[in-house]
């Protein structure tokens, strides 16, 4: 997928502002606040909405002139509800596969297979109106995969799911990208989710590219080690003992953050010996990675032009373990 100087002007709102971007194989996370231009970008990529300026190419096809060819090879999971309540998932996925050009017999086989992959068992024969949100999302995912697309566009696939269903869906997204060999572009406003599933992350803000790179580059090791010890007043005793040994450590939550670059000896040995000397239980030593939210914290918003760029571009929530959501962007 490649876009060059892509601009979409809705008149009152500039949804995309000369966006230039290239996305390759694997799973790509598209992050941005509501109104950052994610959905508009997906609609342009599907050849539904004409761009005001610039060009976009998907799987080697120009979206403006070869919309049907693009749509034959792309699967799409929309953000909102899109399932008729009085049809079973099985019938619906067969129908949708046929709408992508598969003959009836092949459509039946494909539907059975993708429904098995997404984990819809006997309930596939029931009308979808009675489905839970998690089952609906699975049915939506199944129809997006029914015609064996080369690329799937998943618009907020975890929206409205409980933590267990969210984990399952993220697992599926990862499998599509890694095991099925289908390129994935997945949008979310929850950074923690994309951190887990995507190989690349693209950050949009107000219709412009904030950053695009490999996820592991976003999450460079910071050079610090996180240490967890158990025992009476373990953290404070450990911190002071480490300081005495010439290794500065600071308390962070239930862990200690240790600067691995300091000292002459291997810091891990020092930590092990210190814990042993103090009689504390050493639970873990792990490298401290940055999180995607730090990227937002680092990125100073550029001064915007007079026009509003999207709606409410200041909230990018981070979601970890499905209980905390916080604003991380500086105002």
């Amino acid at each position: 997928m490649r876009v060059e100087h892509l601009t979409k002007d809705y008149g009152a709102v500039l949804a995309l502002d000369a966006l230039t971007l290239e996305v390759g194989e694997g799973t790509t996370g598209l992050v941005g606040a509501n109104g950052a231009g994610k959905s508009t970008l997906l609609k342009i990529l599907l050849g539904l909405v004409p761009a005001t300026g610039g060009r976009a190419e998907v799987l080697g096809h120009d979206v403006l002139t070869e919309g049907p060819e693009v749509r034959a090879k792309v699967g799409y999971l929309p953000e909102h509800d899109c399932l008729p309540p009085d049809v079973s998932a099985s019938d619906f996925v067969v129908h949708m596969a046929m709408m992508s050009g598969l003959p009836r017999v092949a459509a039946r086989e494909r539907a059975a297979e993708v429904l098995r992959h997404v984990g819809l068992a006997e309930e596939r024969y029931r009308p979808m109106g009675g489905y839970s949100t998690g089952m609906k999302q699975k049915a939506k995912l199944a129809q997006a995969l029914a015609h064996d697309p080369r690329l799937v566009l998943l618009d907020e696939p975890t929206n409205g799911l409980d933590p267990a269903a969210r984990d399952e869906m993220l697992g599926l997204v990862r499998r599509i990208g890694h095991d099925f060999g289908i390129a994935v572009i997945v949008t979310s406003h929850l950074l923690g989710e994309l951190e887990r599933v995507s190989d690349h992350v693209v950050v949009l803000d107000g219709g412009r590219l904030l950053r695009a790179s490999r996820t592991d580059e976003f999450l460079d090791a910071t050079g610090a080690l996180l240490v967890e010890v158990l025992g009476d007043d373990a953290q404070a005793r450990m911190a002071s003992a480490l300081a005495t040994a010439g290794v500065p450590a600071t308390v962070r939550g239930s862990m200690l953050s240790v600067d691995a670059a300091s000292g002459t000896r291997d810091v891990r040995d020092v930590i092990r010996d210190t814990a042993s000397d103090l009689g504390l239980g050493l639970v873990r030593i792990q490298a401290d990675h940055r999180h995607l939210e730090d990227v937002f914290a680092d990125a100073e918003p550029e001064p915007t032009s007079g026009r509003p760029a999207g709606r409410g571009a200041e909230h990018v929530g981070r979601h970890r373990g499905a209980e905390e959501v916080s604003d991380v962007r500086p105002e």
Binding site: L46, L48, P68, E69, R71, A72, V74, Y76, P78, H80, C82, M96, M99, S100, G101, Q143
Partner: peptide
């Protein structure tokens, strides 16, 4: 939305 995201 699903129909429109298909070739027709």
């Amino acid at each position: 939305a699903l129909y429109l995201a298909r070739p027709l």
